[in-house]
Structures are given as C-alpha cells and as structure tokens.
Design a protein around this nucleic acid. Structure first.
Lengths: 329, 329
DNA sequence: CACGTGGGCTGACAAAAGTCAATTAAGTTG
DNA sequence: CAACTTAATTGACTTTTGTCAGCCCACGTG
C-alpha cells in the first residue's frame, strides 16, 4: 500500500503491486518461510522478494519493535517516578560504554512514542530540534485512524524543523493524517492574534488539542541562543527582559514561569498556540529533554503538570531527583 | 526478562542475563547494527548474539507483526461488513494457490487478535478447538498490564483444549496475567449452579466479563458430534432434543436460539458461564469460524449481536452475504 | 581438593539474505 | 509507432546470519 493511498483516509483496496508486498511479508514474517520459498510461491525471483520485504518494513506493513524497558529499568527511573509523581520515566545513560546519548535519546524517545501511540489516537506534536530529531529516527508504522495535530503556530523560513514539518514528518512515519496549523506562532499585535484565534479554522484546531490522547514535546530555554530567539520570535534583549520578569522556559512557543504557569506578558498574548490547560488535559504528555542546560525549564514544566512521561539523561535525572528530594513539590 | 518475572505482575529489574538480551535486541533491531558489531560492543561472540536475538524474539522483547490487511482487502469483506453491520471482517480464501485454509485461519485470527489487543486491556477468552488453534500459532508479545479472563466454566478431562488451557496459553503468549475460572461448566442441578454462581469468587469473575475490551471465541454447533456432546456436557440425545426445542448454536458453553438469544432450558440454567448481555457489552467481539457446517450457528450469533469482528472463509462469507442480501436483518 | 555437572560461550561451517549491474518490461512522448 | 524514459525484475556475487559440536569455567558435592 502506498502512502498516498493511506493518507487519503478511506480504506482502499490494495493495488496489485502492493498485494504482492503484503503477501510476501505475510509468508515470510508470519509463516516464517524462507525468501526462496516465498519467491517460489509467488513466482518471483528471490531478489524481488528481498526487495518487497524491505519495502514492507519501510512502509510499516511489517513492524519490528523493541521493548524500551532497558531504559526504564534503572532504580533511578523508579525513584524519579515516585518522587515527582510521573507515570513513567526513561533514562538514557551517558557514561561508560554506552551509545552516544545525543543520538540515543531521540531513538529511545521515538520508541517510547511508538509504544504510547495507539490506533485511533489524536496526537499533538510540538516543534523544535529535539522533536525533529525524534521524527527523523522514528520507525515507520501503519497505524489506523491516527491524527497528528500541530500544537502551535508556525514561524518563518530559517529552520528546517518548523512546527509543520515536525507534524508532517511524524504523520508520515505513522501513516497517519497530519493536520497543520496555518497561522504564525507570533503576531505583531495582540489584537491581530486575538482575531486570528477567533477564526473558525484556528479555533477549531485549538479546541481539538484538549481531546488528544498523547502529546510529544520538549521544553525550551530562555537563553540568548535559545530556540525562540534564534527563530526571531523574540530578540535576545526581549528574552533577557522576560527572564527578569519571571519567564523560565518555553512550552509550545509560549513562555512559562518557574511554576509552569503562563507568564502574563505581551509576547504570550501575541502567540497562537495551545493553551496550557488544553495540554494538561492530554493524558499522556511525553516530554523529551536532551540538553543539560534545560534543567530549570524542565523543573518548571514538571511543576506546571505539563509532563506525565519523561525521557532524560542520567545526569538530568539525578539533578531532578536531588531537587525533589531536597524540597519536595 | 523471564516469563516468571513478568507473570508476577510487579515490574522487576532485569536480571543481568536479561539485560544483555535487551541490549542486544536494542542494538540490532532498533539501531540496525550487524550481529558482529553488537557482539563487539557487548564483548560477546557473534554466536551468542544470535542466540540472544532468538530469545528476544521468542519472549516478545522484540515483536515482529505483519499487517492483516491482506485479508480485509477483498470487496466481499467490505460488502459483508455493510450488509451485516460488523466492524470488520477478515476473509481467508480457500481456493486457488492459497495456503491451506485450515492452518491459515488460525494464523489470521491470531494476527487480528494481536492487532486488537491493547496494553491495559481485559480480554475474555472462550474455549474450543478453534480458540486453542489460535492460541497455538499466536506470536509472543510483551503487553503491559493485560489480563486474560476465562469466559466460562471448565469441563472434565478428555480435551486438551479446555477453557482454562485456552486462557492460560493465550495469557502466556501475551505475557499477561491469566485469570482462570474454577467452576465446572455444567452442574447436575440448577440449584447447585445457582449457589455456585452466588459465590463471591465466581460472582466477581462473571461480573468482570462485561468490563472486558475484547473477547475471542468461536460458535459451536449442535450436531451429535458437536463439541458439547463430545465433552460429555450433554448427551447426543439431549442435544437433539434441544435442537427441536429451538437451540441453534453454542456460545461460551450455552445454547442459543436462531435469534441469538439464550434458550430457556434446564441445561442453560445448570451452566456457569458469561451471560450474553455481558458479552454484548464487550466492544470488540472477535469471532472466528473455521467449519463450513457452522453456518446456522454463526447466523444466530450475528443476529444476537454477539459478533463485531469476524474471521471466516470465502465460502462462508458468501453464504452469509446471500442470506443477508436475500433477507436483511 | 579433586570431581563432576551444567550453563553459557566459541569457532568453523552451512544456509540464508542483501546487493547491484545488467536486462527486460511498461509506459510516455514526439 | 518508434524512440526514449522509467520502473521492475533478475542472476550472480558478497555479506550476514544460523547452527552445533566441543570447550571452558563457575559452582556445588563427596
């Protein structure tokens, strides 16, 4: 089955070529025949069968998934869950002979995400480097009736991990429908933002976020080289200003304070993005944090109940734990 | 991770040996390293890695699943869904160069079952040759928090597809908890059956059936060589008698009439089994019918709304379709 | 402390799967 | 309708994987 066909939503009959891929996959993976046996049965060369099988894997007709339990296993993860009250924590080790954490974390996150995503779900996707990395390493799967929605408005050109790209790419991987959000993330005036938010198309989509079953995002920092500044949503000076005014992190393009509440500021009022209560209404909020310098933003997001499932490095986990054990929330 | 450990319910830390299996599986399947690379990384021989990977597949640490769409694909399946109002139909072809349908049907059913079963589900399992065949070919998977419950009481010795065995085997395959039902299917007196049904343990379990998300069963016939007769629950003569009195098929050990309603008879009153309304309350009722001679019982089960998902042969599908198109329900 | 004893590991070989350049088929355009 | 373009298919070759007899080492035992 072709992506285009699946994307169109309607369940379509398989084209002859896709039928063959399905049959080959079925005989090989489900019945355990050898490639030459499959070839014989379908009157093909073995080489073709090998090609078909690769396609079957690439398109999600067959799915090979590995348990991510390895990363939930450490005692540290358990303690963190208990201390902070999260549903589940995955810890990516940085030390010893381990894999490079900078490549490993997105892989773990992608696996976890796939485990959490169910057929029929609506899934909200934020943006950012982390999310894009995850999309990039995510396995193809063929989930039925999944809808992927974009959590916040878009920004202009420079980045290749724009919100709509994150959404689209993940939708493609799941063979799901991707719903993009055609509004800018930040507008130049509060009034304009308000009017745009009231537009039926936008309103509809913003409302639909609260009905998602799963969200995937990271949290942003507020440094001069943070994501928002580099995208030009805010100047470095403005950002510094906001930091003084209590901003601690960024969720779906919006500034939050140290308690994980929306900062009451002009910038936030000019944003078009999911409101925090909608996000909190999503049962599974999967947060993935790669950078060590996102400690304070992460703490804020946790305090603001914006996280239910968490993927972090060992050292970040340790810092979180000592913070909570030192001063329980 | 060992089955014993998983079975115990509590999430336990992995033993060192199981850790290795997980790591090998992760590197090989998730990262796509070659076996020799994995071996190098984990300081093992490649042969050991191969062994570990086999174990990982066998225990459900990695899962390889194939889309069953091939069997939903035919137009016939679509027409049947529409005509009868089922959620989904899978059709196993019998003709042409196809696989032997008698082995293929359980394989398809097992695949469909795995697709329908979600983590966290409660799953009700009936018994019979068909169900046991399905259990037998079912792939191993490692679902979290699944509970498998037995739909009806047990019978005595002769069969090796006793209700408790079906339940236990499927629970083992899913790495789930299996809850057996320690009561006979039929008692010698109505009074005794009633008293037993009122026992807290039994009562509890019977009530819990309505809260399942998925049921797996077949439908029984009422011939002299039918399941119930061969198990000694009913004599051939009694069964013939019941047939005259309107019994058309058997669901979870109980006789149903042509409309899929419980027959009001002594035998049924002596049964300890899920009541039909509890079964109807289960959202996904997967019925699998292998034998051509179960046409009338199947029609009865469908009329009684005991089926939402169906796996049948092409010829059975055709017969169903002509019945419904001839005289819509 | 020598003696099994069994689980896990290895090396070497056989079997299976992956790859790619060449070829054929199918479709498209001037 | 011939020429060209593109995609599908294959045979031959290489690489990777599966297997199993034998080995080694840790551990319990007489």
């Amino acid at each position: 089955m072709t992506n285009a066909e699946k994307q169109s939503g309607e369940r379509m009959p398989l084209r002859p070529a896709d039928q063959l891929i399905h049959k080959a996959a079925w005989l090989y993976y489900t019945h355990g025949l050898r490639q030459d046996e499959v070839a014989q049965r379908l009157n093909l060369s073995r080489a073709s069968v090998a090609t078909y099988l690769r396609k079957a894997r690439e398109t999600g007709i067959v799915t090979i998934s590995t348990s991510s339990q390895l990363y939930t296993d450490e005692a540290l993860a358990r303690r963190l869950e208990d201390a902070i009250g999260l549903d589940a924590v995955w810890i990516v080790p940085e030390d010893r002979e381990a894999l490079d954490p900078s490549t490993e974390m997105p892989v773990v996150a992608a696996t976890v995400f796939q485990e959490l995503a169910r057929s029929g779900d609506r899934i909200a996707i934020a943006w950012g480097r982390t999310v894009y990395h995850i999309a990039d390493v995510m396995a193809y799967a063929d989930r039925q009736n999944v809808t992927v929605v974009q959590l916040c408005g878009n920004l202009g050109a420079p980045y290749n991990y724009r919100p709509d790209q994150c959404t689209t790419e993940i939708a493609r991987r799941l063979n799901a429908e991707g719903i993009n959000f055609y509004a800018p993330l930040v507008l130049s005036s509060e009034r304009l933002a308000e009017e745009l938010r009231a537009e039926p198309v936008i309103l509809e989509q913003l409302k639909s976020i609260a009905t998602c079953q799963l969200a995937l995002y990271s949290v942003g920092g507020i440094e001069a080289d943070s994501h928002l500044v580099r995208c030009g949503a805010l100047s470095a000076a403005e950002m510094a200003e906001m930091g003084k005014a209590g901003a601690t992190g960024v969720i779906a393009g919006q500034l939050i304070d140290a308690e994980g509440q929306l900062v009451d500021c002009d910038y936030n009022r000019r944003c078009i993005s999911a409101d925090l209560d909608s996000i909190r209404a999503i049962p599974k909020r999967l947060m993935v944090v790669e950078e060590a310098n996102k400690f304070e933003p992460l703490v804020a997001a946790i305090k603001g109940r914006l996280v239910s499932h968490l993927v972090v490095t060992t050292s970040m986990a340790q810092r979180l734990l000592s913070r909570w054990e030192g001063a329980p929330a």
